[in-house]
Amino acid sequence: MGVHHKKVPLKNKYTEIERLQKIVTNFCQHYNIPAEILFHLNVVLDEMVTNVISYAWCDNLTHHFNIYLEIKNGLITATIEDDGKPFNPLLTEKVDVTRQIEERPIGGLGIHLAKTMMDCLEYKYQKNKNILTIKKRVKK
């Protein structure tokens, strides 16, 4: 199957999300990733990138960050690296989907989707960078 890589540079603008998803779609379709896996990957990338754009920088300046995609041995790995303030999205409070609608908090949904749709999420802060890695196994 081989190893395939792609780097996607992004700016901190919400309109980048759709552009990213088009790039990810082209990349994954080229390597025959099933539509359902691609859909989950695109949703979770959106959620994680939206977090970065919303919270990583407090000024109104343009910032750049990168996503690294890898397909290897039936595993898709996406790594999001930004130089914004340290923030571990995995430490947010767990969403209880069984709660009544009036008691449901407005926040926390993005990370809930990510945890549900991905096989693995890892966070580390290294060399002044937030490094979030998401992994999804391609069904055989």
Partner: peptide, 14 residues
Amino acid sequence: ISSAGLRIFLMAAK
């Protein structure tokens, strides 16, 4: 739809 959109539906339902 992403969670940003789902959130608006949640607010409407509340």
